Computed example of a mutant assay.
Amino acid sequence: MNVLIIKTSSLGDVIHALPVIDYLHQVSPGIEIDWVAEEQFLPVLEHNPGLRRIFAVRTKKWRKAPFSAETRSDLKELRKGLRERPYDLVFDIQGNLKSGLIAWLSGARERIGFTREVLQEKANALFTTRRIPFRDCDRNVTDRYLRVVSVPFDRDYRGMELAGAIFSSPEDEAAAERYRAELPEGLVILFQVGTTWSSKLWHPEGWTELARRIVARYPGATILINWGSPDEKAIGERIIREVGAAVRLLPWLRIRELIPVLRRMDLVVGGDTGPVYLAAAVGTPTVSFYRATSAATYAPQGKRHRAVQADMECAPCYRTSCDRDGECRNSISVDALFAAVTDLIEPANGS
């Protein structure tokens, strides 16, 4: 059986969708799976042994110049690649107009996706031939992707042990190992201080106080700050100034370079953002917090993960900005995050 998965973005959502690969191989041995993703997220998929082929798309660039020769050539090549081997099933678990068009370009007769009421872009429903409703038990976003994929195989995903692993090249693993060897012995904890929405961020004072408490509780611990913008780097530099040499800036890393570094961390702390989900996917414990979004929907699942939801009556609001932003940030307490950190670290140390 040949199957196509369309999950193009974002980084976190592609990671949340990875267990569908394991599900499909368990329920249909010998299945061959292709995947369509945005070019910048290929490192999450490119070394996965469960995939036959990955198609890279550049939809933002195409939208800026939809009638350019380059766009027309890219779409022609995509259509040609998608039709090289007929797909028995196409699963559109992106659910927007662009993914619907990609599903249609595949030429597959059976294209399965979300029901209209949960689509943000209702036009997507024009391109699917079968639409799967969620159940009340499908609370986490991964559950929802698995629901759509599982129905044609008549086997519920619940009760199955499903992995969402991410693989790296030997060269990137070796580089991460060299970097880890240069750090002091002891705990190494990574802070992911940035994310895409301002309504998902925490305040710098909170990060600084959390770092102080960790360093005081665990002498010899190292805290690394991951950053991807000047603002995030400035927060890291502030934490270093106020806490001291136990805190370091991580070098700026591309996704493929960050993945094996996260694999070598003892713990990752951050909000609703891709690197936190990368960490969980490679087996690293996480502490995550949620303000505008829902911990029940997005937080990593399992005994090695802890999540804190903003203590606001309006949370989760799914707004990208808000007049009560300061109040919402402060509702994520240092006490709650530090308690989650110690809860994960101390059992592992036998304390």
Rank of each mutant, 00 (worst) to 15 (best):
P29Q: 07
D143P: 07
W104L: 13
R109A: 07
L75P: 06
E161L: 09
K80E: 14
T59S: 07
T129D: 01
A56S: 11
A108S: 03
W35T: 01
E121H: 10
F127I: 05
K122N: 05
K122S: 09
F153Y: 15
V90R: 03
L105W: 10
P152F: 05
L105E: 07
N96L: 10
D136Q: 15
L126C: 08
L45V: 06
P29H: 07
S168D: 10
R85W: 11
D156C: 11
A163Q: 11
D88G: 12
V36T: 00
R155A: 11
R158I: 10
L101F: 12
K61V: 08
L105R: 07
T142R: 06
G81V: 02
E121A: 09
D154V: 11
L82D: 03
E70A: 15
A108M: 00
R63Y: 14
R63W: 13
L42V: 06
K80A: 15
P29T: 06
S106K: 02
D88Y: 10
P49W: 02
G95C: 01
D143N: 14
K80R: 15
F67C: 02
P29M: 08
N48I: 04
S68Y: 05
K80D: 14
Q40V: 11
F153C: 11
V44H: 05
A125L: 12
M160F: 14
Q94E: 00
V36P: 00
R155G: 13
F67S: 04
T142A: 06
R158M: 13
A37R: 01
T128Q: 08
L78V: 03
R83N: 15
D143S: 15
L119R: 02
L45F: 07
D74L: 00
W104P: 10
I112R: 03
R135P: 06
T128V: 14
T71N: 04
P43M: 02
F41I: 05
M160W: 11
E46F: 09
I33T: 08
L162S: 09
L119G: 03
P29L: 05
S168E: 08
R131M: 04
R144I: 07
F134T: 13
S28N: 14
R135Q: 13
P49F: 03
F41V: 06
E46M: 09
F67V: 05
D34R: 03
H47A: 05
E77H: 13
E117S: 08
F91S: 00
F167V: 04
Y157H: 15
D92E: 00
L126M: 12
G30L: 00
R116K: 12
S150G: 14
S68G: 08
A103D: 02
S150P: 13
I33K: 06
W104V: 09
F91P: 01
A108N: 02
V149M: 05
I33H: 05
R139M: 11
K76M: 10
G81D: 09
R53D: 07
R147S: 12
K64A: 14
P170I: 12
N96K: 11
G164F: 02
P86M: 05
C137I: 12
